[in-house]
């Protein structure tokens, strides 16, 4: 167990290995997202109730799923960082945070746009939207806390603790918002309880979700690689890499 963890935790090993995966992540991710978008926007049949406006689902749903997965990744990395003190885990957590915040914002924004044709208003205090909004605030808080420390290690550990506290709180926040919502409004606007979609509608969605995941992985890996170089500019292997790159050119 230990050697594996340490191998995985070694920035050099990660840098070398991820260099090989990265083109595939970018490539397949882009192909899936492009295919999914074209299929979903142009070829999938329109919804019998909402018409064409439902097509924003192909952005909204992947963004919402990613927003939550990203928080889960950030929290697991924080746990690994706090328990085993593996700095690579912190770099991944730091790299994932802005992407997660961006996805949360996209989900909120697309939800608001979708709200105009469906609900006739930009914003509804719907349980999902509200808990997404709180998730966005959590992301912003974690990023602000990381940036507020003068010492990078201090900021990293503070952000890790807050991520863990946040991940314990997320389900509580989510359920309390659901209960709050049912207490206030008799009927909630539900986006999920609709008749089963035909395959021509959910297949492009599946492509989009997988594509988003791959692109998320690609962005996170690329940002982590940058962070590795930024933190260890004097390491021997980094210097060798830079010189090798120059010679290669």
């Amino acid at each position: 167990m230990w050697p594996i963890i340490h191998k995985l935790g070694s920035p050099k090993w990660f840098y070398t290995m991820s260099g090989r995966w990265l083109p595939f992540l970018w490539g397949i991710g882009t192909i899936l997202v492009v295919t999914g978008s074209v299929w979903g926007l142009a070829f999938a049949p329109p919804d019998y109730q909402q018409g064409d406006s439902f097509r924003i689902l192909y952005v909204h749903v992947p963004a919402a799923i990613l927003a939550q997965s990203c928080f889960a990744l950030m929290a697991s990395c924080s746990l690994i960082f706090l328990v085993w003190r593996i700095k690579l885990a912190d770099m991944v957590a730091g790299a994932a945070a802005p992407f997660g915040a961006a996805m949360t914002f996209s989900a909120l924004f697309s939800g608001a746009i979708w709200g105009v044709p469906t609900w006739g208003t930009w914003w509804v205090w719907d349980a999902r939207l509200t808990s997404m909004l709180l998730l966005l605030f959590l992301y912003l808080g974690i990023m602000a806390l990381r940036g507020a420390f003068a010492s990078r290690d201090g900021g990293a550990r503070a952000a890790a603790i807050l991520s863990l506290v946040g991940v314990i709180n997320l389900p509580i926040i989510k359920y309390s918002v659901v209960w709050w919502n049912t207490l206030h409004q008799g009927a909630t606007f539900s986006l999920t309880e609709k008749p089963a979609m035909p395959a021509s509608m959910w297949l492009p969605l599946l492509l989009m979700v997988v594509g988003f995941y791959l692109l998320f992985a690609a962005v996170t890996v690329a940002r982590t690689r940058n962070e590795i170089i930024r933190r260890q500019p004097t390491a021997r292997w980094v210097r060798a890499l830079v010189q090798g790159g120059r010679n290669g050119l």
């Binding site: 709180l134 806390l145 201090g154 946040g166 926040i173």
Partner: peptide
């Protein structure tokens, strides 16, 4: 506790804590 070492911790503290207070 997270913001005690920061000089301007006050505003940040509200940003961190208010989402957790909602339930």
């Amino acid at each position: 506790a997270l913001t005690v070492g920061l000089r301007r911790g006050g505003v940040l503290l509200s940003l961190l804590i208010l989402p957790l207070y909602t339930p």
